[in-house]
Simulated scan of single mutants.
Amino acid sequence: MQATEFLTKKPAEIQQPIYLITGTEKYLKNQVIAKLSNLIPSGLQSINLGQFDMEDEWLADAINDAYSVPFMGEQRVVIILHPYFLTADKTGRKLNQDPVELEKYLTNPAASTILAIVMDNQKIDARKKICKLLKKEAVQIDCSALNEKEVRQVVAKKVKQNSYQIEESALNLLL
């Protein structure tokens, strides 16, 4: 699914247990992460929203958080950032992650948790068993660069959302 399609969905339509977010557009990735984060009410985000950076934190901690029952809410969102263990790149890693726990989670995800794995600009290593399972079980959100038509639509929509108007010539100049 394209990121622009995902961003138009209503919160009730975003109920898949696992998302794999790929692509190079950081803006779109941030919008997708924000949309997932906003599924948790702002007063409960500190206890039901977890972000784990795999450069500094253990994968097992993220999976344990995903299995945890939501506290005072109905849903939990766990976001995994920089999952280098899913790529072929071995340079610059501080932690050697063991994906066995993730593999178990992918086959039996918690019903009340949405797990989002956010890839960097690197490609997922399709040869690994965990990556094959992830592609099979997760809904993939593609945050690739937009073409000119899509950029026009996004800008026009943002302008309209903020109760402004823009002339076609001004939009052309902006783009």
Rank of each mutant, 00 (worst) to 15 (best):
M1T: 12
Q2K: 15
T4A: 14
F6R: 10
T8P: 11
K9A: 14
P11M: 12
E13D: 15
I14K: 11
Q15G: 14
Q15E: 15
Q16K: 15
Q16H: 14
Q16L: 15
Q16Y: 15
I18R: 00
Y19T: 01
Y19C: 01
Y19A: 03
I21F: 06
T24H: 14
E25S: 13
K26S: 14
Y27T: 05
Y27M: 07
L28W: 12
K29V: 05
Q31C: 00
V32P: 07
V32K: 09
V32A: 12
I33Q: 09
L36D: 02
L39R: 05
L39M: 05
L39P: 07
I40A: 04
G43E: 08
G43Y: 07
L44M: 13
Q45R: 13
S46P: 01
G50H: 13
G50F: 13
D53L: 08
M54A: 06
D56Q: 10
E57I: 09
A60S: 09
A62D: 04
A62W: 01
I63S: 12
I63V: 04
N64I: 08
A66Y: 03
A66H: 02
Y67R: 13
Y67S: 00
Y67K: 09
V69N: 09
P70C: 12
P70V: 05
G73F: 09
E74Q: 12
Q75H: 11
R76W: 10
V77F: 07
V77D: 03
V77C: 06
V77P: 08
I80F: 06
I80P: 02
L81K: 06
H82E: 11
P83I: 00
P83E: 06
Y84F: 10
Y84V: 00
L86A: 01
R93T: 05
L95G: 04
N96K: 13
D98F: 00
P99C: 04
V100G: 01
E101H: 01
E101R: 01
L102I: 05
L102Q: 02
E103D: 08
K104V: 00
K104E: 03
L106N: 01
L106T: 08
N108L: 01
A111Q: 02
T113Q: 03
I114D: 02
I114F: 08
L115S: 09
I117G: 05
I117M: 06
I117S: 07
V118M: 07
V118W: 06
V118C: 05
M119Q: 04
M119D: 06
D120M: 13
D120T: 12
N121A: 11
N121Q: 13
Q122N: 15
I124Y: 02
I124F: 05
I124S: 07
A126N: 11
K128S: 03
K132A: 00
L133Q: 09
L133P: 10
L133M: 07
L134I: 01
K136E: 12
E137P: 00
E137M: 13
Q140E: 15
C143H: 04
C143L: 13
S144C: 03
L146T: 11
L146C: 07
L146I: 14
E148V: 08
V151P: 10
V151S: 14
V155P: 08
A156Y: 02
A156Q: 13
V159D: 03
K160P: 03
K160V: 00
I166C: 09
I166Q: 03
E167D: 10
E167P: 00
E168K: 10
S169A: 14
N172I: 04
L173Y: 08
L174V: 04
L174T: 02
L174Q: 05
